Simulated scan of single mutants.
Amino acid sequence: MKKTILITGASSGIGKATAKLFQSNGWNVIATMRNPENETELNQLENVLIAKLDVLDESSIQTAVDAGISLFGKIDVLLNNAGYGAYGPLEVFTREKIIRQFNTNVIGLLDVTKSILPHFRKNKSGIIINVSSIAGKMTLPFGALYHGSKFAVEGISEALSFEVGQFGVKVKIIEPGAIATDFSGRSLDLSNDETIAEYQELIGKLLATVNVMFEQASSASLVADVIYEAATDGTDKLRYTAGEDAKVLLGNRHQLGDDAFIHEMKKQFGIV
């Protein structure tokens, strides 16, 4: 029997690359997105169900999960991929934007996971793969919201692995570095108030750093390969790093320790 994966945020980037990879390897794919009517590629592939799912809309989540189970009989893997990055000085964010960042990256992930857990518990099997980031293990200036949300994903995933492991469900975390997707475009939500002079020089340095990072970005297909490994390697491994830059940065943090690593980051941004 073919295995089935449900993917959130499958309209582009990592989500779409992962959908195509799993489909090419003989899996059934439930490719979910906010606007399925705009999809023109995945709906041409066999054994792919395009379903509407907005992580901010609980009813759409359950409807997509139910549709996938109805069509394919069983879901074996959940990939929580949908998300975006809000950057900027904390004091310029409206409360609405703060809530939206955590609703999308954290509450939405929890809602999707909750919706599928009864199915996994009944089957005594399943794999939950959460796309975190190196942003869940280290930080950049003005990333209080985005990094906060990804640090939350790390903690949620690790804690969840204990409670669901007792009935055969595994949890995996994917930690990409800079990926050549649209993250630095539509998935990066930068807020700024240029009248607050104290922040402007550092914001310029942040944008320059981000531009350099994305010049050396890995492909979305590389992350898809790591996701496929996590789904099929049969191990209890929790964390998977994706991209050479991620391996170097996280390796440096581990080697230097928190204080020394953060000091080096501050030096890079001219804060010390």
Rank of each mutant, 00 (worst) to 15 (best):
Lys2Asp: 12
Lys3Trp: 00
Thr4Leu: 04
Thr18Phe: 07
Gln23Thr: 10
Asn25Lys: 15
Asn25Thr: 14
Gly26Met: 13
Arg34Phe: 04
Pro36Gln: 13
Thr40Asn: 15
Leu42Glu: 12
Asn47Lys: 14
Lys52Gln: 14
Leu53Phe: 09
Leu53Met: 15
Asp54Ser: 07
Asp57Gly: 04
Ser59Val: 11
Val65Pro: 03
Asp66Arg: 08
Val77Asp: 05
Asn81Ser: 07
Asn81Lys: 06
Ala82Glu: 04
Gly83Phe: 03
Tyr87Ile: 06
Val92Ser: 03
Phe93Gln: 05
Glu96Ser: 14
Ile99Leu: 15
Phe102Lys: 11
Val106Gln: 10
Val106Gly: 06
Gly108Trp: 00
Thr113Phe: 06
Lys114His: 15
Pro118Thr: 06
Phe120Ser: 02
Ile128Val: 11
Val131Gly: 01
Val131Phe: 02
Val131Asp: 00
Ser132Leu: 02
Ser133Gly: 06
Met138Val: 09
Met138Pro: 00
Thr139Arg: 01
Gly143Cys: 02
Gly143Gln: 01
Ala144Pro: 07
His147Phe: 05
Val153His: 06
Gly155Leu: 04
Ile156Phe: 15
Glu158Ile: 13
Leu160Tyr: 01
Ser161Gln: 10
Phe162Ile: 09
Gly165Gln: 05
Lys170His: 05
Val171Ile: 14
Ile174Phe: 09
Gly177Val: 04
Ala180Gln: 11
Phe183Asp: 00
Gly185Phe: 11
Arg186Val: 06
Leu188Gln: 12
Asp189Gly: 03
Ala197Trp: 11
Glu198Cys: 12
Tyr199Thr: 05
Leu202His: 05
Ile203Gly: 00
Asn211Cys: 02
Met213Val: 01
Phe214Gln: 02
Ala220Arg: 00
Ser221Val: 00
Val223Asp: 00
Tyr228Phe: 15
Tyr228Cys: 02
Glu229Arg: 14
Ala230Glu: 02
Gly234Glu: 02
Thr235Gln: 07
Leu238Thr: 08
Leu238Ser: 07
Leu238Gly: 10
Lys247Ala: 14
Val248Met: 12
Leu249Arg: 08
Arg253Val: 05
Leu256Phe: 03
Asp258Thr: 12
Ala260Thr: 11
Ile262Trp: 05
Lys266Tyr: 12
Gln268Leu: 13
